[in-house]
Amino acid sequence: MIFDFSIVPRYGPALLEGFLITLFICFIGLLLGLFIGGLICWLKIRFPGWGATLANTYIEFFRNTPFLIQVFLLYYVGPVFGISISAMTAGILGLGLYGGAYFAEIYRSGILSVHKGQAEAARALGMGEKSILYRIVIPQMWGLIMAPLTSQIITLVKESAILSVITVQELTFVGQRAISETYNYVEIYTLVAFLYWALVTALANLLKGLENYSTRYLNVRERSPNKLIFMKKQDVKLRS
């Protein structure tokens, strides 16, 4: 078995294009997920009764069903009700909805992990609950959640490969199409796998940098990654 390097010039450009699409859907899906997660977390904290029930239902559904099925529901069920969305839109939406369920719980455990005295000091100075949340608690939350957030973001990037099943023209899909043309699966899967691995590794390092930045105000010894209080064992899972 010899690695056929002629694959690189032949399929390199197509794979690169797929890689860029992967980057694009991951980026938009991630932003959407971070936003939806914030919304769900807010719902859960702001309205402890019905809001929390609604939020928990959402979270449990998206964390306990396969991403593939979620994507099927988005992509194939919509048209039945007369709502047609492109595979790409379904994919991005799927990543956002799925990621949001995990991010919501990560945010919440971060918020709960900020020391109680922090909010109390602000309260004692007459600050309102809203400014306390946005100016004292949430800025400190970021430093606490960067480690689990990083794992979840990486999971999200890897899950994006599943979108090939609904024909989103991303890296995995392009790879499979190339294989169906040439049967050079060793070379092509090696390339595809390498591109994902490189992306994930680069992302992990970037986010590590961001973690250091988000806790720059702490001593090095205080910067231990896991000061999070996890409410339940399964509250925040570090991978899909």
Binding site: A161, I162, T172, Y185, Y196
Partner: peptide, 12 residues
Amino acid sequence: LLRGIPFIIQIF
């Protein structure tokens, strides 16, 4: 490697 590559690729 296994943690850095999507599972669907691993299956293939």
